[in-house]
């Protein structure tokens, strides 16, 4: 793969939070590549570093305490780690935009939704305010909100409609990359389906690449092309969606699938992964998963495994696949 094919390429990204109690190693040596128009699912437990990765791509990791220690993030072939703050502002919302988890809190309560959409447009495109407002109403229509609600405030909308507004804001400048941080967690199931459907359609319409952060494998199956499974701050398995769902390799991924109830297979009890996610302040040596792994070998605790390509662009970060 050459760089020009990839919208985004993250190499060896490491983000630490330096606190008084110690160093939280939130993201460790993370590698992902996303092609144009492709969507990738970032799956993992709470605290696996998914959101920190997303903030890292926007260079919005709260500093202090957060700090990007190492790594390169190529957006369109340019390393954004080296970019200055004004340059980053031009990227945020314009080339890369983000949808936050909770639509209840991610809209400004004292601005009408139309103004909030128009604001993003005005930040990035030179046009008269009246035209921006018109475009904002157009965006609202695209996400299925009639323009007669445009002058309403966020508190007058339901959760699902607010998330639609958030999506409209995120897509207002036709970004090349959309980061969705658990966009449907705060919504109920029927609304989830609507919002996902909407995102899928708009993604195709705008030809946007997407990073979908979630812990719901169902959403991944619905919307993504590729999946990256994260554990303790790094990607442990990375593959095409079908490949991963049919043929999971990493013991953690297998454990994840075993933790989901399956209606076709009547089992008495689910098989949860034993133990807990390690404390990111005190990660185990070697493979971070080895204390919980059934197939752990003595050497697992000695060195961090590299990512092994087992064919079909299926990368597994586990010593078992070192041929």
């Amino acid at each position: 793969m050459t760089e020009s094919n990839n919208m985004l390429e993250i190499k060896g990204l490491t983000i630490h939070y330096v606190t008084d109690d110690g160093v939280v190693r939130a993201v460790n040596d993370l590698n992902i590549a996303i092609g144009r128009g492709e969507s990738i699912g970032l799956v993992g437990e709470t605290g696996a570093g998914k959101t920190t990765t997303a903030l890292g791509i926007l260079k919005l990791v709260p500093n202090p305490p957060g700090k990007i220690i190492d790594g390169e993030i190529f957006l369109d072939g340019e390393d954004i780690i080296k970019k200055s703050e004004p340059e980053m502002r031009k990227i945020r919302g314009n080339k890369v935009s983000m949808i936050f988890q909770d639509p209840m809190t991610s809209l400004n309560p004292v601005m009408t939704v139309r103004d909030q959409i128009a604001e993003v447009i005005l930040l990035h495109e030179k046009m008269p305010a009246a035209k921006a407002l018109e475009k904002a109403e157009e965006m609202l229509m695209k996400v299925g909100i009639m323009p007669d609600r445009a002058k309403d405030y966020p508190h007058q909308f339901s959760g699902g409609m607010r998330q639609r507004v958030v999506i409209a804001i995120a897509l207002a400048c036709s970004p090349e990359l959309l980061i969705a941080d658990e966009p449907t967690t705060a919504l109920d199931v029927t609304i989830q389906a609507q919002v996902l459907e909407l995102m899928k359609n708009l993604k195709e319409e705008f030809n946007t690449s997407m990073i979908m952060i979630t812990h719901d494998l169902g959403i991944v199956a619905e919307i993504c092309d590729k999946v990256a499974v994260m554990y303790a701050g790094s990607v442990v398995e990375y593959a095409d969606k079908l490949e991963l769902f049919k043929n999971p390799k990493h013991p953690y991924t297998i454990g994840l699938f075993n933790s989901i109830p399956d209606i076709g297979n009547d089992v008495e009890s689910l098989k949860p992964i034993k133990g807990l996610m390690p404390d990111p302040m005190n990660l185990p040596t070697g493979c971070p998963f080895h204390p919980r792994c059934d197939k752990a070998k003595p050497e697992c605790s000695e060195k961090i495994p590299a990512g092994y390509d087992i064919g079909n662009n299926h990368i597994v970060k586990c010593i078992l696949f070192n041929q």
């Binding site: 919005l60 919302g93 935009s97 936050f100 809190t105 991610s106 400004n108 601005m111 604001e119 930040l123």
Partner: peptide, 25 residues
């Protein structure tokens, strides 16, 4: 609050953040 971070993630400058998002609240 999250909406300030959301505004930041859409490229708002400090002045926009203060005058349009934070102060009115």
């Amino acid at each position: 609050q999250e909406f300030v971070e959301a505004a930041k993630s859409s490229g708002a400058t400090d002045a926009t953040l203060i005058f349009r998002h934070i102060l009115p609240n």
